[in-house]
């Protein structure tokens, strides 16, 4: 019935450079290494027998991949930052309250102490709690390989269900969150089946920038409604140039319901997700009015 941990093999290299080299070398071979950080997603799939036999590359000990750093372009969050840290980090709490909030909704405390932001990104579940926030915040992902780093906008990171532009030879190094514009309100809400430790039915993150009473920039990002986390440009456009009125909000909600196509699964139904997603947009707008 069950494939066990007996399939697990782990490789550990002493530092980032050697880790990156091991990854790059294995990518060419028959058994590419799979990077592993806190392991909180991986163990779920391993125990469910849902993973093929493969070898893992342990990253947990690589302190080079830790730290939340203030830079001129924004805040750089390194790959192995755990959600427990992000939930409490003063800089994150002040500048990206939606990310701090989302971090507090990831799993439970035991999970938050192990789960990392890069793990959430690399795992690529459309239900990943932090991912809509990263989308709404215009995050950029730094990928590294032994030979060269590159930066990718998070809005172009995923190519499909649990697939991304990350090459097997690349590691997620860090995430850059640009400074929020003045007048920006961030919103996050997770709707799950249970209050503690539940995978979402719908998760939303928005950033709405208002200058001189009109919306100048809007990001509406959703999780658990498509194969990847998604932004909904048509709904964002509905708000642009508008005052934050219930009419604008319901127009955004209407367009959102037209542009997303969620599915039925064990956690909810497509119809329910559509209804709730629309209402969440309206609630996000109402929140921005405060």
């Amino acid at each position: 019935m069950r494939a066990a941990l007996s399939r697990l093999r782990v490789v550990r290299e002493p530092n980032l450079a050697m880790t990156a080299r091991a990854l790059e070398e294995s990518a060419e071979g028959p058994r590419p290494l799979v990077p592993m950080a806190g392991g909180t997603d991986l163990f779920v799939y391993l125990n469910a027998g849902a993973l093929p036999e493969q070898d893992y590359l342990d990253l947990w000990h690589l302190d080079e991949l830790r730290g939340v750093i203030d830079t001129p372009g924004g805040v750089r969050i390194h790959a192995l930052e755990t959600f427990a840290n992000l939930r409490r980090d003063p800089l994150v709490k002040r500048r990206y309250p939606a990310l701090a909030e989302a971090s507090s909704w990831v799993g439970a405390r035991q999970i938050q102490n192990r789960a990392t932001i890069a793990g959430n990104i690399a795992n690529g579940s459309p239900a990943g709690d932090s991912l809509p926030v990263l989308l709404a915040l215009d995050a950029r992902i730094r990928l590294v390989r032994f030979s060269a780093p590159r930066d990718v906008g998070f809005d172009t990171f995923y190519t499909g269900y649990r697939t991304s532009v990350r090459h097997p030879s690349e590691l997620i190094h860090s995430i850059l969150l640009p400074w929020p514009l003045p007048g920006t309100r961030q919103y996050f809400r997770k709707v799950g089946t249970r209050l503690a430790q539940a995978i979402s039915k719908v998760v939303i993150a928005t950033t709405i920038t208002v200058q001189k009473g009109r919306v100048t920039r809007a990001r509406i990002a959703l999780g658990s409604v498509a194969a990847t986390v998604v932004r909904v440009p048509s709904a964002e456009d509905a708000l642009l140039g508008e005052k934050l009125t219930p009419a604008a909000a319901s127009e955004a909600a209407r367009r959102l319901r037209e542009s997303i196509h969620p599915i039925d699964d064990i956690r909810s139904t497509a119809a329910h997700r559509l209804r709730v997603a629309g209402r969440l947009v309206e609630l996000a707008v109402a929140d921005a009015l405060r």
Binding site: V10, G39, T40, W60, A108, Q110, I111, N113, R114, Q197
Partner: peptide
């Protein structure tokens, strides 16, 4: 064995973790 029930919680450097999801080598 999926980090869900918390019965395997131990403190690692003072913080609760699900010990079913931590490799022994990672606890070194």
């Amino acid at each position: 064995e999926m980090g869900e029930c918390g019965a395997c919680t131990v403190l690692m450097d003072g913080r609760p973790v699900n010990s079913c999801m931590v490799l022994a080598v990672a606890a070194s």
